[in-house]
Simulated scan of single mutants.
Amino acid sequence: MEQARLLKAIIETAIDGIITIDNRGRIESLNPAALRLFGYSLEEVEGRNISVLMPEPDRSGHDGYISRYQTTGEKRIIGKGREVKGLRKDGTTFPFRLAVSEVQYENRIIYTGFIHDLSREKEAEERLREYAAELEELVEERTKSLKKTVRALSEAKEEVSLSLEKEKELNQLKSRFVSMASHEFRTPLSSVQLSASLIDKYAEPYDNKNIRKHVSKIKNAVGNLTTILNDFLSLERLEAGRVEPTFTAFDLVKLAEEITEEMQMIAKQDQNIIYQHTGLQSMVLLDPNLLKNCMINLISNAIKYSGENTFIEFNTEINDQQCIVTIKDNGIGIPESDHKYLFQPFFRAHNTGNIPGTGLGLNIVQRYASLMKGDLYFESRIDTGTKFVLSFHK
């Protein structure tokens, strides 16, 4: 008797609905949660066919379903169940997850249904889809606007470089662009990136592939725009002579390990960055910010131009004469005919296709290395890979 009272208390206080029917589909009992979900009292539905709680077409096909269940031996066990719709007394419908089990009770068979209301989950999923769509549209608008500005700047550069007078006009245009980019793009891009990350976090419980796909597209678009913006800002500062290296003693190995961890987070699937240091020393006298920018730029290129399931070798070496940084990939490589143009601003190799980029990164790396009295050289073969080496004399 004690167990019976405990079982009854559990059923009566359960959050999910519990319903039992006989082998002819007639309702025998509903717990309070189920009655609230469907809007009936027990007296109103007891003894009626279970189809009264179903909208079409499930209502018409339910008797056939029970028949198939009984004749074919198909068994529904308690578990994840299946998603169906319920019909309330007021005529409205709602989604729920239904799990059914067969119970042997007093020499007869009854069926127990466990009902988990999905209304809130569905509403939340719809809100997330709408929000993701709004953010994607916003990013597309910002992307078009920024690309239009970048194209205008590139076209302007070609025209004004014909004379010193036009060169002056170009510098003025670039200054206006930098000012505009700093204020008009950085803040909204940061907001979009933060919102996309929050959507990704809030959507984790629903495990929705479409939400993850669109959030990933938003993040990638924002990342590309941020890279473009940073490249143009760096180029402007270099050409304006506003970049002066600050030589500081720092631990190269510690910096390289931090960069490796940071870049591994944005690497492609099963793409691994392998870091190794050679030498007993780890301290160097260089500008840590400029060197970090160089290493991140070169590793980003290795990630971008290599495929999934590949290795990127990242090595540092300190000996008596030099400090050497090497980044090697086994990606698409650089056509030999493009080698001599590779460090020119806005130049991109002819085999990059639709891979995004500004053509400014390597020019910036070379100029940063030069400011630190260093050199940058590379080796590359098409479809084999590329190795970039930064070297600094002590």
Results as ranks from 00 to 15, higher is better:
residue 41 S to V: 04
residue 337 S to G: 03
residue 380 S to T: 07
residue 249 A to Y: 10
residue 361 G to C: 11
residue 258 E to S: 11
residue 159 E to D: 06
residue 213 K to S: 13
residue 52 V to M: 14
residue 200 D to M: 10
residue 23 N to Y: 10
residue 277 H to G: 07
residue 342 L to P: 00
residue 334 I to G: 03
residue 14 A to R: 00
residue 36 R to P: 08
residue 177 F to V: 00
residue 168 K to A: 01
residue 227 T to W: 01
residue 151 R to A: 08
residue 275 Y to C: 04
residue 83 E to R: 14
residue 191 S to L: 05
residue 270 D to T: 11
residue 193 Q to N: 14
residue 353 G to C: 09
residue 100 V to A: 11
residue 188 P to K: 04
residue 82 R to G: 06
residue 14 A to W: 03
residue 288 P to L: 06
residue 106 E to Q: 09
residue 239 E to V: 01
residue 335 P to W: 13
residue 350 H to V: 06
residue 205 P to S: 13
residue 109 I to S: 02
residue 169 E to I: 11
residue 188 P to H: 05
residue 23 N to M: 09
residue 162 L to V: 01
residue 210 N to A: 11
residue 114 F to K: 08
residue 131 Y to L: 15
residue 6 L to M: 04
residue 284 V to Y: 07
residue 87 L to S: 06
residue 210 N to G: 04
residue 358 T to W: 08
residue 25 G to E: 12
residue 234 S to L: 00
residue 244 E to T: 03
residue 247 F to Q: 05
residue 314 F to Q: 01
residue 351 N to F: 09
residue 144 K to A: 07
residue 177 F to I: 00
residue 13 T to F: 08
residue 187 T to G: 01
residue 369 A to N: 05
residue 126 E to A: 14
residue 154 S to K: 15
residue 46 E to L: 07
residue 91 G to V: 09
residue 109 I to C: 03
residue 261 E to T: 15
residue 377 Y to V: 09
residue 218 I to A: 10
residue 42 L to N: 04
residue 58 D to P: 03
residue 209 K to Q: 15
residue 201 K to V: 12
residue 218 I to W: 05
residue 248 T to K: 12
residue 152 A to D: 15
residue 296 I to E: 06
residue 371 L to M: 04
residue 239 E to Y: 03
residue 128 L to K: 06
residue 61 G to K: 05
residue 67 S to T: 12
residue 52 V to Q: 07
residue 38 F to H: 12
residue 265 M to N: 00
residue 13 T to V: 02
residue 157 K to F: 01
residue 163 S to T: 15
residue 80 K to M: 09
residue 254 K to Y: 01
residue 313 E to S: 13
residue 308 E to D: 09
residue 108 R to N: 14
residue 140 E to L: 13
residue 82 R to Q: 12
residue 228 I to R: 06
residue 102 E to L: 12
residue 127 R to N: 11
residue 327 I to G: 09
residue 310 T to C: 04
residue 203 A to D: 05
residue 391 S to Y: 11
residue 231 D to S: 09
residue 229 L to K: 02
residue 10 I to G: 01
residue 167 E to G: 04
residue 88 R to P: 08
residue 83 E to C: 02
residue 323 C to A: 05
residue 172 Q to T: 01
residue 64 G to E: 15
residue 205 P to Y: 14
residue 222 V to R: 13
residue 319 N to I: 12
residue 115 I to N: 04
residue 320 D to V: 10
residue 105 Y to P: 04
residue 161 S to V: 07
residue 328 K to P: 00
residue 106 E to T: 11
residue 295 M to Y: 06
residue 36 R to F: 10
residue 159 E to S: 04
residue 57 P to Q: 05
residue 343 F to H: 07
residue 233 L to G: 00
residue 40 Y to M: 08
residue 106 E to K: 11
